[in-house]
Simulated scan of single mutants.
Amino acid sequence: MPDTLIVTRPLAQAGELAQRLREAGRDVVVFPLLDIQPLPDPTALRAVLARLTDFALVAFVSPNAIDATFAQLSAWPVTLPLAVMGEGSRRALARHGVSAPHYQISSPHDTERTDSQTLLLALDLERLRGRRVLILRGESGRELLADALRAAGVVVEQVAAYRRSVVPLDAARAQQLGTLLATPHGWIITSSQALQGLLESAAHVDPLQGVAKLQQQHFYVPHRRIAETALACGLQHIHLTDAGDDGLLTALQSRP
């Protein structure tokens, strides 16, 4: 495995993982590919939070959705169940004072597979049939969870809590990316959108060789969907890890 690891998470979420990697003896570069921003107009989010009692369950798609929601909310109703994808979201809830056993929080039983499909297996869909479920997410996202809930007879409402965009490629970032592409490194990619942004940036920095240089890099991804995106883009050195920081660190430690 390359000595240097590139952490590409949004800046606010990159620090903890970078520190753990450094403690494990790795050289780390933080190079965020996505930027998480508040909504320019949170009116719709505030309106739905004002009627949380309308819902039988609220599902958060990510820690970003949790942080953005609680920025608009003073406290969570104790009787309102929540659902999250993984341990990162459980920790985000805990930072806001929401944790078991005081609150009912559903999440995938298999902590090594944390996505919409495994979350569905953890939900009591029969209890939710005919009732309302709120999904809080970014401005864009996959529809799998919402579609599956609707297919089970659940009334679904989705509301954006934050905005996610590719970090602009200014002169300083372009120079840094060019340097990183010059030799093989290990890139930790946790989003298909981030991967697409990296490909576009590499092609912009080096129109002739940028993508070819990316094909010499190693990519560590926590989800099969991201791995499939990488393969479809012609990337070759793809390592699928378990979900979460622990799964990533275990995979990295098992490689020379």
Rank of each mutant, 00 (worst) to 15 (best):
A232Y: 11
Q236E: 06
A212Q: 13
E139H: 12
I105S: 04
P81I: 09
V30A: 11
V221W: 08
D67E: 14
A47R: 15
L195S: 06
G210W: 11
A18S: 15
R132D: 11
V84G: 04
P184C: 04
A65D: 01
T114Q: 15
T53F: 07
V166S: 12
T53G: 09
D124A: 10
T229S: 14
D27M: 04
P101S: 06
G210N: 04
R163T: 04
C233S: 15
L21M: 07
R164A: 04
D41Q: 15
E200H: 13
D246P: 00
R22S: 11
F219N: 03
A161K: 02
V61N: 07
G210M: 07
R95S: 04
R127W: 08
S74G: 06
L136C: 04
N64T: 05
L34S: 04
H237W: 02
R173Y: 03
Q72T: 00
E157M: 02
M1E: 08
Q37G: 00
I226N: 01
E157N: 02
A202P: 03
A94M: 01
V155K: 13
L93I: 11
G186N: 06
F60E: 03
L136A: 02
L214T: 04
T118A: 08
A75C: 10
L128N: 13
L119K: 08
F60G: 00
A203I: 13
L120R: 10
G244V: 12
Q104K: 10
G244C: 05
A227T: 07
V84E: 07
F60Y: 10
H223Y: 12
